[in-house]
Amino acid sequence: MKLRVLHSGPGLMATIQDLGRPQARRYGVPLSGAMDAHSHAMANLTLGNAPSAATLECTGGKLDAWVETGGRLSLSGAGGALYIDGHPVPSNRAIRVPEGTLLTIQPLPGGNFCYLATEGGWAAALVFDSAATCLPGKFGGYKGRVLQKEDTLTSSFSTVSPFKTSIEPWFLRTDAPEVPSPGTPLIISVLEGPEWNYWTDRQQQAFLEKPVWISKDRSRQAVRIRGLSFLEHGCGDFFSTGVCPGTIQVPLSDDPAILMADAQTTGGFPRIAQVIAVDLPKIAQAKTGQLLRFRLVDIAEASRLLIAYKLKLQRLEIAVNLR
């Protein structure tokens, strides 16, 4: 499989991503990896790839690419739809795409991100054992940057395994992402952050009850949340400490932020709460203005949900590879 980028629409940000580089955090290196790790994994699993194979994350605009060498692809994620020579192609399915066709990824209003997987993953040199693009550090992925016109991508596998076929849609039906309505609060489960008790009982209660919404200030580093001005605090004397994707930091004079994939490894603001791992893809896909409601869970519940999710992914992987 080989693609050549013909045109990238205004606002498009296309980067190679995988599950990131957790072990490089000691050097101040962000985790990086897919913003919506669930859709990234689905695109891979439908092709029979490991969930960690590198995919192309697209957001914010239209991508046109020329298929220079044919092969199999799969697209997942609420933020985009795949077209081959102008014909719509279903998501979450392995599609054989012939040489000499035009591939288009068109943004969809229901989300922000989509993931294009290819057999074996897109080829990229590994930095700290990961193919993910680290935009803040300008390394990894495709030359450490977003894709531009004339860039070419190739899959790691040159040969096609005839045994791996697509998952039937019924298999994935329960996983189909619900497209949230912006006016109905999206329920997001959170753990108490290490500084939860910096705030009074009344502020904690308001944090869990007041409607809050996604700001237009969104990036791969952080998604800001509006409607939380009642969390104002005078705590200027806070020493930088460890944070990770999902941490909700409350700065002194700005909206609180949910840290995302490219977040820094340490932060200098109190950590009120932590979005649980299985809910973080919902934040990645939530549009500006989306209402949210935080729900407090304990570490037992959050861990149970995460382990159940990982076991489900493993079962899917086994099911695909047995077909």
Binding site: L191, G193, G242, C244, T247, I276
Partner: peptide
């Protein structure tokens, strides 16, 4: 506990 995958000791 910071997250399902991190703890923080002060």
């Amino acid at each position: 506990i910071l997250s399902e995958s991190a703890v923080c000791i002060t």
